[in-house]
């Protein structure tokens, strides 16, 4: 069941669209539920679809098309490192290697304690601060060095 808080937030998003266009809120509704639950299970997606009164497949299509939705568990902190051209030119490789070594996981893996998950990201639109990474789709960390990565990991633990 969707939580009261989630419903409140989804209702706010619905105010942005004509009343006969509830599907328009599916992007934010999925984001809201994912933020609350950590990832989107088939069940979560169906709950969102039911709430908006749209077919399950309509919500599932969206959840699987956009790459910031996670349809599998991701651990408590999902770290997405951009490796696209501007970051690559400023050595995002060293940031990736450092994270992988430090956490003992590769891309799309979760640490044994369930704390961290590592993802490779496409351009996040903040290339002036390359190399960079985002945590849980929300907090951007720019101008990374391996020391800065260590600090961030410590803050998250």
């Amino acid at each position: 069941m969707l939580s009261v808080e989630a419903i409140e937030k989804i209702e706010y998003e619905l105010t942005k669209y004509p009343i006969d266009q509830r599907q328009a809120a599916v992007m934010s509704a999925l984001r809201i539920v994912q933020t609350e639950r950590g990832w989107l299970s088939q069940e979560s997606i169906s709950e969102v679809a039911a709430y908006l009164g749209i077919p399950d497949i309509a919500a599932l299509e969206v959840a699987t098309f956009y790459n910031m939705y996670d349809t599998e568990p991701v651990g408590k902190y999902k770290i997405t490192v951009c490796t696209n051209i501007s970051c690559m030119l400023r050595d995002s490789d060293s940031i990736v290697h450092h994270l992988q070594e430090k956490l003992g996981i590769g891309f799309n893996e979760i640490t044994a304690d369930g704390q961290f998950c590592l993802k490779e990201g496409e351009c996040m639109g903040a290339c002036g601060g390359a190399p960079l990474m985002s945590v849980n789709n929300a907090t951007m960390h720019e101008n990374l060095t391996t020391d800065r990565v260590d600090e961030i990991l410590k803050e998250l633990k």
Binding site: A24, M27, E61, V62, Y66, Y69, C123
Partner: peptide, 27 residues
Amino acid sequence: LYAVHGYGAYICGEETALIESIEGKKG
């Protein structure tokens, strides 16, 4: 005027994909 967000799809920078996305569909 309202703020809406994408969730990770480069293609939505294309204006008609973006419109599809506003409508809550694949971009």
